[in-house]
Design a protein around this nucleic acid. Structure first.
Lengths: 197, 197, 197, 197
DNA sequence: TCATAACCGAGACGGTACGTCAAGTCTTCAA
DNA sequence: TTGAAGACTTGACGTACCGTCTCGGTTATGA
């Protein structure tokens, strides 16, 4: 416990309240439309309080999104004896999360934040994708260990494909017409069974 | 021949000159750093001239990027007798385009522009992904017709996987550490040959 | 007849039509609110046509006002045997002209034009006051000649006082509460008879 | 004690600093040449700060000029036993103020400002003329009380004549040719002694 | 008669300033 | 020291006019 010598301590509840307000505004508008000013006004908070905690808009949005992502269930890859079922379950879980317009808006906002500040690009975006990649990789590696998967398989490639397909879906899906197909069987067939005759 | 009776016609050369200036500024800085004002100043153009043609920054940037994308070679999927080689060639061509820092900056700008205008959000992404999807699909369908690919294969899923992987790469790649591996053999092995033992 | 070699001659009716439109807009708004663009639009005239005839807003407004002033009756000083009656008649005539809100707006516009462009200040404003001054001076001089007025009287001072009082009235009168007193007897008493006991 | 709970208070020094800068720019150029932007730049002040205090250019200029007018001596009508001398002193004081090119520029700017905002038009002029009128009227009334002036005299008419003559002088005087005669004896002779033979 | 030349409406052009909005900092009072 | 409130500088936004220019097209003269 190094510091905080004297003075009033920071209000811990404010932190989550601000993140919540940020998410609300993000669901209502776009990343660009969200302003520090509007967050401060909606949260009934001085702008100084905002800047005391986050250096700028991008990190605030990043934390708000990742906070929601972390809180909304685990997104861990299931581990059963059926690899295909496990992967499908993981994909479906993500797809349903993405299908919620509010969640999709959050992810789009995170991408926008990353694209807007190329310096934080990595830190910001990979914070979301790296854990997913790790989870899928681990599950695949276990499948190799269990002899369910060919040892020569490029596990990273498969993980990237799964994540990439979800990413593409977030960005191109229309709020109106939800993509009905959340089965992913065709994808998993191709990835696991192969397609060449 | 509907309209434009009377009045001085718009200068067509200005259009491309402005797009070029926009690209230059985008290569030098981020989307957020680019301002309509700086474009106007650099292009020696009145701001009104900008707003006469593009309602805001986002569509201007979008057109500038897509214009460059359209002009920079075709990115058509090659058609030889070797499906795997054709797909790999297409992937490598895109990967190299993406790896070029200037191009990556343009794409990041496009993403930021899409995030800025939620209305055009999907339209913008689809403008990029739909033609690619069509190209890949067509090539795959031909492979099915030629008997090289299993007729039951989910062609859309494969196309989405290929596009998704490139998308993921754009978003996660850092300016510093270029991803060295542009082979995609592992991915194609998995997708075409299958991985399940 | 110096020039006009070849080419279509200028449309003479346009001239007065534009001046009329200018006056209409001046009656509706202020000098500052009037724009060359609005004049052109309202008169269904190209801007080039405006600038071909007047170098800028101030001269256009000046001509529009002076044109109306010149057209609206004579404002000549009457010449009877009764100096006081003549001056009062002249004052009343002016006062009634001024009491019309549209006319007052025109004069205010002329003053604004003069104040806005100090270079044309003299030319612009004195064009209005000098003829009045001359008219009054002449009438006063005649009164001196006729022996009705003391030869030592400062005729210019009296003329200035009469014009100045009208000027003050234009600028300070409220559109709502017209100044009821249009008699000017008190003023003429003071100026002609003196006030010192 | 009504309001202003919390928040940083407005900087009072900025107010006068901005007015001073406005006057400097007005002395250098015309009202039309002065821009809010130039005021902000010269005063090292954000435009928001300007617009927080004045809704537009006209009121700012008005306050700047009236502030200088109020600060530059009192222009009170002297009160001695000699009415004519007192009035002459007052006239001369004003005439000299008007003759100063810097002051003339300020007054021209005030006139332009008044013309720009038709709503404040009268208010603005009256702000200048009413106090003067009151001062002169009071002095004249005192002269009546002292028996120096005929009780039947129209005091308002005399006051208006004096103010009107100064107004005329401001408007017609050119920067180049200063009117040399600042005596006003002819005017005062006519007004006080009368001219009719 | 037919070219030449100035005119005309329309509206795009490069600029400058407008008045608004947001970013990020600073200053006050209260807790 | 934290907070809410809000003024501060800076700089971009999108709009309005300025005065100039370029279109297609008209209307007079003069070859």
């Amino acid at each position: 416990m190094p510091e905080a010598r004297g003075g009033r301590p920071r209000d811990a509840e404010l932190h989550s309240a601000i993140l919540e307000v940020t998410r609300e505004l993000l669901a209502a508008g776009s990343y660009a439309e969200l302003s520090m000013e509007s967050v401060a006004a909606r949260a009934q908070v001085g702008k100084k309080t905002l800047y005391r905690r986050w250096p700028s808009k991008a990190p605030l949005v990043a934390e708000a999104v990742l906070d929601a992502y972390g809180r909304s269930g685990s997104f861990d890859v299931p581990v059963s004896t059926d690899l295909r079922a496990d992967l499908r379950a993981w994909l479906v879980e993500h797809a349903e999360f993405i299908a919620d317009p509010a969640s999709a808006a959050l992810i789009r906002a995170l991408i926008a934040a990353a694209a807007a500040s190329p310096a934080d690009n990595i830190a910001l975006y990979q914070q979301l994708s790296v854990p997913q990649h790790a989870g899928i990789s681990a599950r695949l590696r276990r499948a190799v260990d269990d002899g369910h998967l060919d040892a020569a398989t490029d596990l990273d490639a498969i993980a990237d494909a799964l994540i990439g397909i979800l990413l593409l879906r977030v960005l191109t899906q229309t709020p109106a017409s939800e993509q009905p197909r959340t089965e992913f069987d065709g994808l998993l067939d191709a990835l696991l069974d192969g397609a060449l005759r």
